[in-house]
Design a protein around this nucleic acid. Structure first.
Length: 720
DNA sequence: AGCACGCCGACT
DNA sequence: GTCGGCGTGCTC
């Protein structure tokens, strides 16, 4: 097991960068002009005797205010003005001293008291804290440190991160008395962890206060939630706290149930998005005050102020809901990596599948693999069979019924013994172009971005915008392209009609089924919405192959495999008759990985390829978007690291009036463009820092900012 | 983002 | 003289 030695790794290890240069220069000039000032404030006011200066972070997300401001601490607020409390202060250029010495103008705004110090670097007279909102020290030094690291990693402001990390105050919740922490449980019986080669070792390390870091490839089946609960139990037994982040409410409920079974009530809290403000704040406070030592929740829980944190867990890090959709868009996996490094606690990244980022954590030595051997995998996984184009062509019956014989038989056979899952694609996937002969995705020969057909019919790169007039396939030499379309939904409907005696249940975006009984039924579901079948599905039919693999996204292969494995993991093992039929070309890498049930192998190969092509996560990318002209203007003056490479800009599709706007997209009717900047491994922090400094300067200078504002997103989620 | 300060043109 | 245009810069 790798333990917390701060080893470097590509994803988050390069976190030292030049800080707020502008602020530093300004500060230096000031100090040259005037020596350090005693806290001078308005005439005759009584100040706190000890440490009369409060450093305050004003709660405004704007980057050029992303530093501390000093305020005087009046004597009467001395006792409550502790580090970490919420305060209100007068802030703004309008503030001025008037006759009686009071300051007015510049409205009252919220902030956090970060630190009490003896004197201020500021030469002017200090304004006084207007109010201490509550004595509850919500911003602990650890949380502040983490929030700053996240802000730096994502080129965002500290205030923006704190908005995600500290829930809004609720006075009634704050008044609640909370009991002492419950006694730690005994170390767990490792139970199903025995199936993993180093499972026992991992649990033992947790129980004895160690900080192992592991990428865990969970065996298919329902045991993962209990295994996470046992890891939590082991950590609690060592006298430390634990934090588990899962992608959605349903998996959160599973882990919650497992924890309740194992630990009883009162040891843990469940933090999900659907709770009201009061309840959320109450739970959050209980955690901060140490009345609760373990937490399971969805992404907002990644900042939960668990006392004496011993373990962080992220389940299924490939799920897109692990990306926060508020600025600066931090990802759960990255945040928990930062927490594990800073708090020197254990780290467990688990899933049935394996992301490229997870593979990178192992490759770099930052985390150790935690996987079962092939024999265990074979015992737990279903049999996987494929139906490719050649089979379809040979299959007379398939052409008539639109469904291959093999799939047909698997369904009929499965329905005799229990429920059968049919996975169909969600609507709205945009297929990308691929070689008509070998299906290799069509990529730009210049930057390897995805090629797309324009309205006029010409080919253009989605990243750098270059036109491609003479494409040919580098894999097989073919020169014809095709975009795949699927009719899987109709196939599923036809399937239902073919077995009229069997009930058809559907689960999708609008209505997600949680479980289905252990009885014959056709369960039609979109990826991610699959109900759990008590006792497992007898078979699964994966009809979304082309829709998944054809998406114009770098992650299409990985994502297809993740979703297939997610469905396959709900099917009975092969030994119990479980079968998966995937309608996709058997020569494709993700399909082969599914057949072998080898998500790690797939991720490792994908990682090698990404390294070769200069793709994330090996390289780090940032997207800069804004009004036409503003983007390149901004980048020209941004002082990017010398090894940074600018791709594009390309036009961003115009948001149609009345259409819902995608996060970070242009306002309706405006013409925007987007450039990608990529840097080699190790320069990620320098890139984020350069972009942040440049944006702060631009906002401070540009004043209104409105029409010239650009948006920055580190690790853009969809890169063609 | 607000808001004041400042340095030019038209006004009572 | 003085009111007010909004360009520029600061906010403890």
């Amino acid at each position: 097991m790798s333990s917390g030695n701060g080893q470097q790794h590509g994803a988050g290890g390069d976190d030292a960068g030049p800080p707020e240069q502008l602020a530093l220069i300004r500060e230096a000039v000031r100090q040259a002009k005037a020596p350090r000032a005693k806290p001078r404030t308005w005439r005759g006011a009584a100040l706190a005797e000890d440490l009369p200066v409060a450093r305050v972070l004003v709660d405004k997300g704007v980057l050029h205010l992303d530093r501390y401001f000093d305020y005087a601490v009046p004597e009467e607020l001395d006792a409550v003005a502790r580090p970490g409390v919420r305060v209100r202060v007068r802030f703004g250029a309008g503030a001025r001293t008037v006759r009686d010495g009071r300051r007015e103008g510049g409205g009252l705004i919220d902030g956090f008291l970060v630190e009490r110090v003896a004197e201020s670097d500021y030469t002017g007279p200090l304004a006084a804290l207007a109010q201490v909102v509550s004595p509850e020290p919500v911003l602990s030094p650890e949380l502040l440190d983490l929030a700053r690291a996240v802000a730096d990693r994502y080129a965002g402001s500290l205030a923006d991160v704190l908005q995600l990390a500290v829930p809004p105050r609720h006075a009634r919740a704050e008044a609640t008395e909370m009991g002492p922490p419950p006694a730690p449980p005994a170390a767990p019986d490792p139970a199903s962890w025995r199936r993993y080669a180093r499972g026992l070792e991992f649990l033992r390390s947790l129980a004895s206060g160690g900080a192992p870091r592991a990428v865990w490839t969970a065996l298919p089946g329902p045991w993962w939630a209990e295994e996470i609960a046992r890891a939590v139990q082991a950590t609690l037994a060592s006298g430390r706290g634990a934090l588990v982040v899962v992608p959605a409410g349903r998996p959160a409920a599973r882990v919650d149930a497992a924890l309740r079974t194992l630990l009883g009530d009162g040891q843990h809290a469940l933090l999900t998005a659907d709770a009201g403000q009061e309840r959320r704040y109450r739970e959050w406070l209980a955690i901060r005050r140490g009345a609760v030592r373990a937490v399971v929740g969805t992404r907002a829980a990644m900042f939960a102020p668990v006392r004496d944190l011993g373990l962080v867990v992220v389940w299924d890090d490939g799920d897109s809901s692990h990306s926060d959709d508020n600025a600066p868009f931090p990802h759960v996996r990255e945040v928990l990596e930062l927490r594990a490094s800073r708090d020197k606690c254990a780290f467990l990244l688990g899933g049935w599948s394996c992301t490229v980022e997870a593979a990178q954590l192992v490759e770099s030595g930052w985390a150790a693999p935690l996987a079962a051997d092939r024999e265990q995998v074979r015992a737990a996984a279903p049999l996987v069979r494929t139906v490719g184009d050649q089979d379809l062509a040979r299959d007379e019956a398939a052409r008539a019924a639109r469904l291959p014989t093999l799939a047909w038989e698997a369904v009929r056979e499965g329905l005799r013994r229990g429920p059968v899952l049919v996975q169909v694609p969600r609507r709205g996937y945009v297929p990308r172009l691929a070689c008509a002969q070998c299906r290799a995705p069509a990529r730009c020969r210049h930057c390897a971005g995805p090629l797309a057909a324009q309205d006029a019919g010409e080919l253009r790169c989605g990243w750098c915008g270059r036109e491609e007039s003479a494409w040919h396939c580098p894999e097989c030499g073919g020169f014809r392209l095709r975009a795949q379309v699927v009719g899987a939904r109709r196939t599923a409907e036809e399937l239902g009609r073919a077995f009229p005696a069997v009930p058809v249940r559907t689960s999708g975006r609008e209505q997600v089924l949680d479980t289905v009984p252990d009885a014959p039924a056709l369960v039609v579901s979109t990826p991610g919405a699959e109900p759990v079948a008590e006792g497992g599905y007898t078979a699964a039919l994966l009809l979304d192959g082309w829709a998944m693999l054809g998406r114009p996204d770098l992650r299409a292969g990985e994502e297809a495999l993740r979703r297939w494995i997610g469905a396959g993991a709900l099917v009975r093992p092969q030994s119990a008759g479980g079968t998966v039929v995937v309608v996709a070309e058997p020569t494709l890498r993700p399909v082969q990985a599914l057949v072998r049930w080898d998500p790690v192998g797939h991720a490792v190969r994908e990682l090698a390829e990404r390294a070769e092509l200069g793709f994330p996560p090996v390289s780090r990318m940032a997207a800069v978007s804004g009004p036409a002209g503003a983007v390149m203007d901004f980048l020209a003056g941004a002082g990017l690291p010398p090894d940074a490479e600018v791709l594009g800009p390309v036009p961003v599709p115009v948001t149609e009036a009345g259409r819902p706007r995608r996060t970070g997209g242009p306002p309706p009717g405006e013409r925007w463009e987007r450039a990608l900047i990529r840097v080699p491994p190790g320069s990620g922090a320098a890139l984020a820092s350069a972009l942040k400094t440049a944006l702060a300067a631009r906002m401070a200078r540009g004043g209104s900012g409105g029409s010239e504002a650009v948006r920055i997103r580190i690790d853009p989620p969809e890169i063609g």
